[in-house]
Design a binder for these strands. Structure first.
Lengths: 183, 183
DNA sequence: ATAATTGGTATCGAGTCGATACTTTAATGC
DNA sequence: GCATTAAAGTATCGACTCGATACCAATTAT
């Protein structure tokens, strides 16, 4: 029997994932760029990006190289763990990201009313989280919703990460993290 | 402000659309194959496939060529309109399709209860249909749910297509059609 | 210390993908 | 009827994707 829901979902997915051939970039490159715009500083590495995109390290390495060649992303080595590569959006990258043209995902969501979105969002979240957990992939949630997140730490910085033992700025807390585990 | 729903949707889309690297095929090839398994005979052409996948004719032409080279699909010219190319799954193609391994879209949907799916399906349908209409793309619905569909035609065949002026078998009626317009 | 693990890169080959240009066949306009 | 326009496909190109394999360097386990 033909599963219409599955086919519909797959088609929608293709339309969304295949979107982004403007400005001389490819869909994955846009997604990488967008990820770097919403990930906190611990998560802006090739490895985390690979986990987010569901690709191999090798593939991501090339995508990052291309973005660097285009002057949109910068790689810098980490002083503490010298295996790590930190990725940063350049000014050009950030600028490009800000004037992103129409986006298929957003266009689709725009067709839903606020009420419908309020029903849709948790369903999608549940579906995605269940899948990721079943496959042993990282969920990538908001830092502030993590069980290692310590709100209003006493010292300097407003918050604190109990896992990495590191102070968290306001931007970090509002961003996505590879290490996130739901509270 | 970061739109978490949009990012979540995009990630899910990538995971689904990027799935299908088994059996020496690529994701698009699987999707093309699957489409040919659910499309009625009027819709099994390169053009309709391009519309379904949201790609250009040129790209699809190559994908089809690859599938033909692999012996999974056959092209035959149409006698009436000699511009048309009819695509047919070969035995090998059909067999491969039947023992398809785990599918990300299905795996995700499996995480929902029947009740959740019953809420999710119409939302997704609404979202997708709205987007397609806004962009002037074909919706691709069930033949039997088309406004040109005439149930229980008097003569030989069970049903009839008022648009193409052609009798419809039971399989056609239960399949997806490029020409479909909701009743 | 030595092994195992982790984070990344290099290279390869098949394939994707849009863009452009082109061919053949059908429909449309006088 | 015949010229024009439109439609369906294909050919070719160039940049890029993508997994696979192999590899290196730094870190962590034993």
């Amino acid at each position: 029997m033909t599963d219409r829901l599955s086919d519909m979902l797959t088609r929608a997915a293709r339309l969304i994932a295949g979107d982004g051939h403007s400005a001389g970039l490819k869909p994955v490159q846009w997604q990488a760029l967008r990820y770097l715009g919403i990930a906190n500083r611990f998560s802006r590495t090739p490895g985390a990006l690979a986990a987010w995109l569901g690709q191999t390290k090798g593939t991501v390495s090339q995508t990052v190289a291309t973005l660097e060649r285009k002057g949109l992303v910068e790689r810098t080595g980490d002083a503490d763990d010298r295996r790590l590569v930190r990725l940063t959006l350049t000014e050009a990258g950030r600028a490009l990201l800000e004037r992103t043209p129409e986006n298929v995902a957003d266009a689709m969501l725009a067709g839903l009313t606020a009420a419908e979105r309020a029903i849709f969002a948790p369903l999608l979240a549940h579906m995605l989280a269940g899948f990721l957990a079943a496959r042993g992939h990282r969920p990538f949630g908001l830092c502030a919703e993590c069980r290692h997140f310590l709100r209003d730490a006493e010292r300097g910085s407003p918050h604190f990460c109990g896992l990495l033992d590191v102070p968290l700025g306001r931007e970090d807390a509002a961003a996505i993290c590879v290490e996130q585990e739901a509270a």
